[in-house]
């Protein structure tokens, strides 16, 4: 009887017939085309529609980034105001008596001051309001000053 050469140690590869040793689950090739077709169609959809979770995943950091940028922008605006705001802030820090003293000591004439400071309608309204708020005593003092200046200018 011829020995079963497949169960002895073969010396040549030709002694072993090419045989499939791998199997698949039952019905595997019946369901595979459907799975592949669905995946293929899915793969051509835009990425965000493909995975709704992805949209949230990206939207959240984006919203956070905008909020942080907005916050820092606001803070920067507060810490670096424009020149007018800066000057107003500096003047706010100087007391009224110090300002009066400075103006009295300077050689600036009313015309020179008016050249630098521009009065808008709003400013004038404020000024009128301020004048109306002055007491009689304060008004008398101002009138005295004006008269004196007028006299000296002449």
């Amino acid at each position: 009887m011829r020995p079963n050469k497949h169960h002895t140690s073969p010396k040549k590869l030709e002694d072993i017939p090419p045989k499939k040793v791998f199997n698949v689950p039952e019905g595997y090739f019946d369901t595979l085309p459907g799975i592949i077709q669905a995946k293929a169609i899915e793969s051509t959809k835009p990425a965000f529609i493909q995975q709704p979770g992805m949209a949230l995943k990206w939207a959240l950091p984006l919203v956070l980034l905008v909020l942080i940028a907005g916050y820092y922008g606001f803070k920067l605006n507060q810490t670096m105001p424009n020149n007018d705001t800066k000057i107003a802030k500096m003047l706010d820090e100087v007391s009224t008596s110090e300002l009066v003293a400075y103006i009295e000591e300077t050689d600036l004439t009313t015309d020179e001051i008016l050249e630098v400071v521009s009065f808008e309608d709003d400013n004038l309204e404020d000024f009128t309001y301020d004048v109306n708020d002055l007491s009689d005593q304060e008004l008398d003092l101002i009138m005295d000053d004006i008269l004196i200046e007028d006299i000296t200018d002449i």
């Binding site: 169960h7 045989k19 040793v21 791998f22 698949v24």
Partner: peptide, 13 residues
């Protein structure tokens, strides 16, 4: 796991 074949076939693999 989803593999069959005799000893020689498996040895070849």
């Amino acid at each position: 796991y989803y593999i069959s074949g005799d000893e020689v076939q498996l040895k070849l693999q």
